[in-house]
């Protein structure tokens, strides 16, 4: 069964839907949608750690669409006392979804938008690992990293890792609601808008 997915015959419907978004001709796109997202994870190791929650918000025409919003919390199969510390919101289990369901919803939300996050590589890898567990391919979306954009604006030569907090300070953005994935996604979206305008993207 699993091999059928890989050769593309028996792919699940949601994945097919996701892929059809990328079949369109890019030139026809007038309004480019960006999705800024952030996630809480049980740790920084993409191999062993898992996603705890995802928050995401859409940007169209240089404006954050407040209604174009996505948030999901994921049930943990194995309890890891270490991970609890990271997640300040302890949700009731019935508000949480299993990882597979969360990924399906996330793909439905992002469609073919350009993904934006702060230090995006880890986040992307976490999602790709989750997709791998579903025996699916990797994310197809183009992506942008606010950290990289910030470096470019600062004219830094070598890659330096700057935290979202530091970027906010440098750009004078209020760091409100920085404790949840959705709050972080919103803050990152402001950072992105600001950098986008400063860099003229």
């Amino acid at each position: 069964m699993a091999l059928d997915w890989l050769i593309g015959t028996n792919l699940p419907q949601f994945w097919k839907n996701y892929l059809t978004h990328f079949e369109k001709d890019d030139n026809h796109e007038v309004h480019k949608r960006y999705v800024v997202f952030d996630m809480e994870t049980s740790g920084l190791n993409w191999k062993d750690d898992v996603i705890l929650s995802i928050g995401a918000i859409g940007i169209n025409d240089n404006a954050i669409e407040i209604g174009d919003f996505f948030e999901i919390f994921i049930k943990q199969e194995k309890f890891n006392s270490h991970s609890v510390a990271f997640s300040d919101v302890i949700k009731d289990d019935d508000e949480k979804f299993v990882e597979a369901e969360a990924i399906i919803q996330f793909l439905n939300f992002i469609k073919d938008a350009t993904l934006v996050s702060h230090n995006i590589n880890l986040d992307l890898e976490m999602i790709n690992q989750a997709l791998k567990r579903l025996e699916l391919g990797r994310l197809k979306n183009t992506f942008m990293d606010t950290n990289a954009l910030f470096q470019r604006w600062q004219h830094h030569v070598q890659d330096t890792q700057v935290s979202l907090d530091e970027v906010c300070d440098a750009l004078k953005i209020k760091k409100s609601d920085r404790l949840t994935a959705s709050g972080n996604a919103y803050t990152t979206a402001l950072v992105f808008l600001k950098l986008k305008s400063k860099l003229g993207i």
């Binding site: 240089n62 404006a63 305008s197």
Partner: peptide, 14 residues
């Protein structure tokens, strides 16, 4: 109302 609103960023002098 908020759900249907947007947030925009203006550079100085924009």
């Amino acid at each position: 109302i908020a759900n249907l609103s947007k947030i925009i960023y203006l550079e100085k002098n924009q």
